[in-house]
Amino acid sequence: MKRITKIEENRLLNTKKLRVAAYCRVSTASDEQLISLEAQKAHYENYIKSNEEWEFAGLYYDEGVSGTKKAKRSGLLSMMADCEKGKIDFIITKSISRFARNTMDCLEMVRKLLDLNIYIYFEKENLNSGAMESELMLSILSSIAESESVSISENSKWATKRRFQNGTFVISYPPFGYDNVDGKMVIVPEQAEIVKQIFADTLTGKSTYAISKELNERGIPAKKGGRWTPGTINGIISNEKYTGDVIYQKTYTDSSFNRHTNYGELDQYLVRDHHAAIISHEEFDRANAVLKQRGREKGNGGDTSRYQNRYSFSGRIQCGECGGILK
């Protein structure tokens, strides 16, 4: 006859603390949102460290980014990478909408975490992925979060369109040569001189590559403090804002939150004499005519992407150090 003896578990062996991380996100970089982010970060760090059975595994966050695209959220991607490296056992976040506003992304990440035996707790919904009998509830709540995001986006687009129409839209991030002062575009004198030189050099026959190389050699920083590239120079020459005019809605976001160049799919709005000009309309037109002529000589017309992608690996190899694209 078989004899079965129960061997009691040794609780002394189960003393390893649960490594708990938290994820926070705010969608805009406004002062109010950043204050909210700091409050979330402080809350979760204290909350995790106050539990004796938990070990603080880090706090990951994204500020000023939308939750509709995970590819643009470095904090979230860093957390997922650390999960794969086995550094995290459990994750806490405020709500599904803070974690992801895209149903597909949300389910994909939760499934990936479950495969790694890592659970995530959504505080607002009181939902623990480790206690779910099915994905139905998560799918429903994720869909609600995504629908809410679409509704917010549509309301924002409507409000923005009204500002386009009445000319009250504020350009929060002006191009190189300008700054935003109390909602108005104001010329930055030293940068304006660089812009004038770029247009003058273009008209004398210098290529965008030669101009960018010269600016880098002179140690002049670009708009974001980075290096100048031919694409940056091309963008300045083709930007109508340097004439004092503004064209609104040159790009748009579709229902899937993907950004597109507006080739006439939606209305555009031209505002003349919106701000002080750096370049005259005549000089602007002549410089752009030069660029178009060079494009025709290369056989690609106005389609620069055709030139940049003429070979199999053009635009597809990225430098691991500076992030530049190899052409």
Rank of each mutant, 00 (worst) to 15 (best):
K2N: 13
K6W: 12
N10Y: 10
N10D: 15
L12I: 12
T28V: 04
E32P: 04
I35R: 11
S36P: 01
E38I: 02
A39E: 08
K41V: 13
E45I: 09
K49P: 02
S50T: 07
F56S: 09
G58Q: 03
Y61V: 10
S66A: 06
G67Q: 00
A71Q: 15
K72L: 15
R73I: 04
M79I: 14
A81W: 13
C83Y: 00
E84M: 12
K85W: 10
G86D: 05
D89P: 15
I91Y: 08
T93N: 09
K94W: 06
S95C: 08
I96W: 00
R101M: 06
D105I: 06
C106S: 11
V110A: 06
L114A: 14
D115M: 14
D115F: 11
L116Q: 10
Y119S: 09
Y121T: 09
E125S: 03
L127F: 05
N128T: 08
S129R: 03
G130E: 05
A131C: 10
A131S: 13
S142V: 03
S143I: 05
E146M: 08
E146Q: 13
E148V: 08
N155Q: 14
W158A: 14
T160Q: 13
R162Y: 15
V170M: 10
S172D: 09
G177Y: 08
Y178D: 00
D179N: 12
K184W: 00
V186S: 07
P189I: 07
E193I: 05
E193Y: 09
I194K: 04
Q197G: 09
A200L: 01
G205T: 05
G205C: 01
K206T: 00
S207H: 06
T208Y: 00
T208V: 08
I211F: 02
S212L: 02
K213T: 04
E217I: 01
A222V: 02
A222I: 01
K223E: 04
R227Q: 12
R227M: 07
R227D: 03
T229R: 11
G231P: 02
G231A: 10
T232S: 13
I233K: 01
G235F: 03
N239D: 08
K241Q: 07
Y242N: 01
Y242F: 11
D245M: 06
Y248L: 06
T251V: 14
S256N: 15
N258C: 12
N258R: 15
Y269L: 07
L270R: 05
L270D: 04
R272D: 06
A276I: 08
A277Y: 02
H281W: 06
F284A: 00
A287M: 01
V290E: 03
L291E: 01
R296D: 15
E297C: 10
Q308C: 06
R310M: 06
S314W: 05
S314F: 09
R316V: 12
Q318R: 15
E321S: 09
E321G: 07
G323N: 00
L326W: 15
